[in-house]
Each structure stands twice: as structure tokens, then as C-alpha cells.
Amino acid sequence: MENGNQSEGKDPSTFLGEITGAPVTVKLNSGVVYQGELQSVDGYMNIALEKTEEYVNGQLRRSYGDTFVRGNNVLYIAAR
């Protein structure tokens, strides 16, 4: 369907580029949630975060300086 009306949604790579350096929430397939500053994302959805907090069942479990999350574990990334 090519009707020239693609402004309704954003390309995921465009969205991720716009939120680089911003606070994000990353939820893993296991249910674990990471909150931190997005530093980079590659084509495999591998994610680098800074100032990261890990939440398990809604409870803060650990705080990390830098965190690397492998892309195949990611359920979603949301800007905060």
C-alpha cells in the first residue's frame, strides 16, 4: 500500500535514534525490567544503557553503572 501517508508511524530505527541519550525502560522476555539512559542500539537490538536500575517483580533489585542487554532478550523499549 503506497499512498504517501507514512507520517502516522515512525520507523523503529528513527525512533531509537531520537531517544538515544534519553531515559528508557527496557523489558525483557523474562519479565525483568531495566531503566536507564539509552546509549546505543545496534541492528540486532543489542542495547547499551548507563545509570541502570534492574527491577524484578516491580522491586528494585540492583543498580549498575553500564549495562549491555542482548537483543534477543528484549521484549520492548519504551521512552520514559
Score class of each variant (00 low, 15 high):
1 M>T: 14
1 M>G: 15
2 E>L: 10
2 E>P: 06
4 G>R: 02
4 G>C: 02
4 G>A: 01
5 N>E: 15
6 Q>P: 06
6 Q>H: 11
7 S>H: 11
7 S>K: 11
7 S>Y: 09
8 E>V: 10
8 E>G: 08
8 E>H: 13
9 G>Y: 14
9 G>T: 12
9 G>D: 11
10 K>H: 10
11 D>V: 13
11 D>P: 08
12 P>G: 02
12 P>S: 04
13 S>V: 13
14 T>V: 10
14 T>M: 11
14 T>L: 13
14 T>F: 13
14 T>C: 12
15 F>C: 05
15 F>Y: 13
15 F>K: 09
15 F>L: 06
15 F>D: 07
16 L>G: 00
16 L>Y: 00
16 L>T: 00
17 G>Y: 08
18 E>N: 12
18 E>C: 07
18 E>H: 07
19 I>Q: 00
19 I>Y: 03
19 I>S: 04
20 T>L: 09
21 G>K: 11
21 G>I: 06
21 G>S: 11
22 A>R: 15
22 A>C: 12
23 P>S: 10
24 V>F: 03
24 V>S: 07
24 V>A: 06
25 T>K: 05
25 T>S: 08
26 V>T: 02
26 V>F: 01
27 K>T: 09
27 K>E: 12
28 L>N: 03
28 L>A: 03
28 L>C: 02
28 L>S: 04
29 N>H: 00
29 N>V: 01
30 S>I: 05
31 G>R: 02
31 G>D: 03
31 G>V: 04
32 V>K: 06
33 V>N: 01
34 Y>A: 00
35 Q>G: 07
35 Q>C: 10
36 G>N: 04
36 G>D: 00
36 G>R: 04
36 G>F: 00
37 E>K: 15
37 E>Y: 15
37 E>P: 10
37 E>T: 14
37 E>S: 15
38 L>Y: 04
38 L>M: 04
38 L>D: 02
38 L>F: 10
38 L>P: 00
38 L>K: 01
39 Q>D: 14
39 Q>L: 14
40 S>F: 09
40 S>E: 12
41 V>Q: 00
41 V>I: 07
41 V>C: 00
43 G>W: 08
43 G>K: 13
43 G>M: 09
44 Y>R: 12
44 Y>G: 10
45 M>G: 02
45 M>C: 04
46 N>Y: 07
46 N>W: 09
46 N>F: 05
47 I>M: 00
47 I>L: 06
48 A>I: 08
48 A>C: 08
50 E>K: 15
51 K>W: 10
52 T>Q: 02
53 E>P: 00
53 E>K: 09
54 E>Y: 01
56 V>Q: 07
57 N>P: 03
57 N>K: 09
58 G>K: 00
58 G>E: 05
59 Q>T: 12
61 R>T: 11
63 S>N: 14
63 S>V: 13
65 G>A: 14
65 G>H: 13
65 G>R: 15
66 D>S: 15
66 D>V: 15
66 D>W: 14
67 T>L: 07
68 F>D: 13
70 R>T: 09
70 R>P: 03
72 N>F: 13
72 N>S: 13
72 N>I: 11
73 N>T: 07
73 N>F: 00
73 N>E: 02
74 V>K: 05
74 V>H: 07
76 Y>C: 06
76 Y>H: 07
77 I>H: 03
78 A>N: 08
78 A>E: 08
79 A>K: 05
80 R>I: 10
80 R>E: 14
80 R>L: 12
